Amino acid sequence: MMTLLFALFLVAMLFAVYNKRSLAIYSFALSLVISIFWFSHHASDTLAILL
C-alpha cells in the first residue's frame, strides 16, 4: 500500500513538471486523502502488548 502512495505522489509530481496543473492538484489531493485514510487505519489499531 505504501508503494501505491509513493506512486500516486510521483504521478502528481510528474503532472506538475509537465504543466498539467489541474491533474497535479487532483492527484495530489487524492494521494493526501488516501494517506490520511491509511494513517487512520493504522493509528486506530490496538497494540498487542502483554504487560
Score class of each variant (00 low, 15 high):
9 F>C: 14
35 S>G: 06
30 L>S: 10
22 S>D: 14
38 W>L: 11
47 L>A: 05
2 M>V: 13
10 L>Y: 08
21 R>E: 09
24 A>Q: 01
20 K>V: 05
26 Y>C: 08
13 M>W: 11
24 A>I: 00
21 R>P: 04
46 T>L: 12
16 A>M: 05
41 H>V: 12
34 I>Y: 03
27 S>P: 06
17 V>W: 07
48 A>C: 08
18 Y>K: 11
25 I>E: 06
28 F>R: 10
27 S>A: 08
47 L>Q: 04
5 L>K: 01
10 L>M: 12
18 Y>E: 07
20 K>R: 11
42 H>M: 06
12 A>T: 05
24 A>R: 01
35 S>H: 04
14 L>F: 11
28 F>S: 12
16 A>G: 04
46 T>R: 11
13 M>D: 09
49 I>K: 07
46 T>M: 13
1 M>A: 15
13 M>R: 11
43 A>K: 01
14 L>Y: 09
44 S>Q: 01
1 M>E: 13
10 L>F: 13
51 L>D: 06
32 L>R: 00
8 L>S: 07
33 V>H: 01
16 A>T: 04
35 S>R: 03
50 L>S: 12
26 Y>Q: 10
39 F>T: 00
14 L>V: 10
2 M>G: 15
7 A>W: 11
23 L>V: 07
20 K>Y: 06
8 L>V: 06
20 K>N: 06
30 L>T: 11
24 A>C: 02
36 I>C: 00
37 F>W: 03
14 L>D: 07
50 L>K: 13
26 Y>E: 09
13 M>N: 12
3 T>D: 13
6 F>C: 15
25 I>Q: 08
15 F>Q: 05
25 I>W: 08
5 L>E: 02
4 L>Y: 08
50 L>C: 09
32 L>S: 02
43 A>E: 02
21 R>W: 12
16 A>P: 02
45 D>R: 14
8 L>E: 08
15 F>I: 04
15 F>K: 05
26 Y>T: 13
10 L>A: 12
31 S>L: 02
41 H>F: 15
22 S>W: 12
35 S>M: 04
40 S>P: 05
11 V>P: 04
21 R>D: 08
42 H>V: 06
11 V>R: 04
3 T>E: 15
24 A>W: 00
28 F>V: 09
45 D>N: 14
7 A>C: 14
40 S>E: 07
16 A>N: 05
45 D>S: 12
20 K>E: 06
29 A>V: 13
30 L>I: 08
7 A>G: 12
1 M>V: 11
21 R>V: 11
34 I>T: 04
39 F>D: 00
46 T>P: 08
43 A>V: 02
44 S>E: 01
49 I>N: 10
24 A>F: 01
42 H>R: 06
34 I>P: 02
38 W>F: 13
11 V>C: 05
20 K>S: 06
11 V>I: 07
41 H>C: 15
47 L>M: 05
28 F>G: 14
44 S>V: 01
23 L>E: 07
28 F>M: 15
39 F>C: 00
41 H>S: 15
9 F>G: 12
1 M>P: 13
28 F>P: 09
35 S>C: 06
10 L>G: 08
34 I>H: 03
14 L>K: 07
2 M>R: 09
26 Y>F: 13
50 L>M: 14
37 F>A: 04
1 M>C: 14
4 L>R: 12
31 S>H: 03
37 F>P: 01
